[in-house]
Structure formats: C-alpha cells, structure tokens
Write a protein that binds this DNA or RNA. Structure first.
Lengths: 253, 253
DNA sequence: ATTTGTGAAAATATTCACAGCG
DNA sequence: CGCTGTGAATATTTTCACAAAT
C-alpha cells in the first residue's frame, strides 16, 4: 500500500454558494509500478537517503554493526522520527527494540538509489570547476566513476586529467552512444549550456547535473539537478542579514 | 492562539532536546522586523529569489525593462502563480495589467537577500575544489567577493590565487576578526571540517557553506548550507534507475 | 525494556482561480 | 482587456505519540 488519499470522508460540505469542483487530472504523479512491488519514495526522502548512506559508511568504518534510529539520525543531522519515516518507504528493515543492521540498511539504501547499477557519467567542460570535479575523490568513493571528459577548447582537448583524456565536444553524440552515458555533469559557461544540453538529450542522456547558472529547458523524461554556487551564498546572505538586523534590534531595545 | 497540544498527561519528557510549549514560530521563516516593514519570507521562497534575480539580470542585459509574471516564471523555470506568490512576500511591486519593472524588482530582491550589505567571505581550503571556487566568476558577478583564502598546507600558504595570497589556517581567528568575515566557504577534507567549523564559529562566523561531506554540528544561531556533490549524483541515479525500470516495464507489457 | 513502524495531526509548500486594479 | 495579488484548496513534508514487536 502506498500512501492513501487522506479522504476526508465527512460528507458534502457545500456551504459555498458558487464553487464548482471540476474533475482534474492529477498533475505530476510519478507513480511507476515496477514488478508489482515498488512503493513510491517521496522526493524529500530520496534527497536524504544519500546522507544516511554516508553516515552508515562512517559507522561501518568504525566497525559498528547495529545502529538505532536515534543514533543514525544524529549522525545524519535529522530527527529520528523523520529518519524512521524515510526508511519505512524502503520497507521494514529494522529490528524493534534493537535498531538497524548497518550492512543491511546500507544495501537497501544503495539499491533504492540505484547505486547497484553502474551509471556512466560524462563530465562536460574541464575548466576551473570541471577539473576540480573530475578529480573529486568523493565521486569515486561514493560509487561514481567519470567515464568521459569533454571540452570545447582545442587547447584542453587531448590533455589528460585524472587519468582520462579530454575529448572534443564535437564527438559528444558518439561518446554518449559508445560509452553508454546516461548521466552528464555540465560544467560549461552559461551561454552554451542550453545548446550542449540539447545535444546531450538528443544523444540519449536522461539525467543532468547542471553547474551552469542557467535554467535548462528539457523534455519531461529528463531530470535536471542544479547546483548554483552563487545562489547558495545569496541564501546565506539573506539569513546573515536577518541575524544582523535582529542583533541590532536587540540592542536598540 | 496558543499551542494545540494534544496533552496526553504523560509527565516529564526529559530526553527531548527542546521542550517547546511556547507559541510556535513558523519553521523556516524568520520573523524579524527590519526598518518597520518586512514580512517573513518562507524558506522555499528565499531559495528561489536567487533564481529570479539571475533571470532579471539577463533580462536587464537585453535591455528589457518590463516583464510579466508569466515571462519571468518561464525564465526562472517555475510556474507563474508560484512566482507571484513568492514576490508577494516582498511587498507589492507589480503593476496590474502590465507586469514588473525589471529594475525595481531587481532592487527589491537584492535588498531582501541582503545583497546591498557587503558580506565578507572567507574560503577555507584551496585544494582542487577550493581553487576552482576561488576563481569562480559567478561569485563576483553576483555580488560576492572572496575576502580571504586560508589553507592548512604550508606548500600552498603564500601562493597567490585569483589575486589573493593564501594565508595559514593558524591565523584563522585573526583573519576573521580583522577582515570582518561573516560567511565562510568550507572546502576542506571531511575529517578536519568539524574542527575548523568550530574555530570559525568561535571566531564569530555565523554562516557557512559546506562542501565537505560531513554533517556539521553548530549552535543554533549559525546557518549551514551544504553542497554535497556525490549526493546530487545519487539522487539522479535514483531517478535514472526508476526510468530504466519503467522503460523495461513498458516493454514487458 | 527498547526501539521500530506508522496513523494522524500539524506545518509547509504549491496551485487554482478570480476579484480587482490599471 | 491583461495581469497582479491573494484567499482558498491541494499537495507534500514534518512531527507527534503510541501500539506492536522482540
């Protein structure tokens, strides 16, 4: 059973004189039934699973084999009720009165995130940021190996970065096909991002991690995640400014 | 209005971190009165304001002076109702039947985000990623100038990156004080992140953008935003796997 | 005696749809 | 008209709190 409609079954409450309920198509319901038994995992939960996995990995390194929701929650920086609710979407893998087995839970989360499948990742753009990403140890240690490096600049094409030869962007379509790329990391200047994105999608890429400061337009079957570094600072700036104002206010008072 | 409190008469509950039985402040909103008239802006809205600002900046470059909510929404990749609702938290700056003045709106959003205040940013850790961040043009173009570069590695201390001399981490406290740093960008290895974080907080930093793959523990007056690159790929992996499964299912059917 | 798993409640966020202004 | 601003309706997410399991 997946999350059922709340169903406020309290009869008709038609006090309102002029409200018409038009039957409406549910928007954006992404409930894919696979093999009869896949519950839908809320997006907010998916985003946290990666964090749990990291925490579990640390516990595992410390040779800890069992962990309670409270302990894992602290390690992941969330509260334990949320953690348990999140895990409940994957199934029932805890032991009441005891906790979760670190190994089992790691496997389940990995499987849910699809990390048991070897997704092949291409990195487009090996400028400043791209080079750093290419060498980022965190990708490798958490299950991702960059399979191809592309760049538009002839100066950079042919050079070797982190063991991979940079290839020309002209060969994008061939590389995606040959290397069976499904995920692309875009670290190119904003003004070319959409065009390259179009080519990636045309070549069959269905997931894009975008570092370019533009909103990419893609067909609905393509997922885009955006990392906007300046936006992060601006969000901090907002809170920073509020705190400063609050401090002043406190003084004034 | 007070707290709803189900009130099962269950006596003490000492384990709970924060026993709050006080009128609840809406989570995610900062209710701070600044200069008489600022309403609280929901967290989700704050996160989008940066995107709107970027879209406005592009419009401005194209010498467009007026924009409708629909147009701006498309440029920002959201729907127009959401955009209008978001903007309504800042006040009423649109003109009915016409749209928004690009300049006015830019100013208002900038002000709301606190970009008119010059926050001073220190970047800790100039390894691979740190160097890329130090040179990231997007920071400068969107109102942030890195004021200090620190690193623990003597090899790197003294070198000049993007016009700034890398200084030793031993001087962290002095630098934060002298340069009046309020925001720190942490691009250090995970195993030292918490320790450096503690020193930053001790020195008076109240906002941290964390690239290290660890959950930082900080006092409640400190804001932390985390950028977890591997987690982003894992989230894409989840969706990618779902799509692949759905495609198989469709074939099987 | 503990700790999970989860309905139900509360809090947030998004979307609808239209009154009202220019 | 056309478009904003916004209550109301939905939808999603978080939190509570406790029955069930070991």
């Amino acid at each position: 059973m997946s999350v059922p409609r709340p169903d406020r079954g309290d009869g008709a409450r038609s006090v309102d004189p002029q409200v018409r309920r038009v039957p409406r198509v549910r928007r954006g319901e992404r409930k894919v039934q696979v093999r009869g038994e896949v519950r839908s995992v809320p997006e907010a939960t998916v985003a946290r699973l990666a964090t749990y996995l990291r925490a579990l990995s640390i516990l595992s390194d410390e040779a800890i084999t069992t962990v309670s929701s409270e302990e894992l929650a602290v390690a992941a920086g969330v509260n334990s009720a949320k953690l348990r609710k999140d895990l409940s979407f994957l199934g029932s893998y805890g032991i009441r009165g005891v906790g979760y087995d670190v190994g089992t839970l790691t496997d389940q989360i990995s499987r849910t995130l699809g990390l048991t499948v070897n997704h092949r990742v291409a990195l487009i753009g090996v400028g400043n940021l791209g080079q750093a990403l290419a060498g980022y140890a965190g990708f490798a240690s958490r299950g991702f190996r960059i399979a191809a490096l592309l760049d538009a600049d002839d100066q950079r094409v042919g050079s070797v970065i982190s063991g991979l030869t940079v290839r020309p962007i002209a060969a994008l379509e061939d590389i995606v096909a040959e290397d069976e790329i499904t995920i692309a990391v875009l670290a190119v200047p904003g003004h070319v991002a959409q065009e390259i994105c179009n080519r990636l999608v045309g070549a069959g890429v269905t997931s894009i991690l975008n570092f370019a400061p533009v909103v990419l337009a893609v067909p609905s079957h393509v997922d885009v995640r955006k990392v906007d570094l300046a936006a992060e600072l601006q969000i901090l700036s907002f809170h920073e400014t509020r705190k400063a104002a609050a401090a002043l206010g406190a003084v004034a008072k």
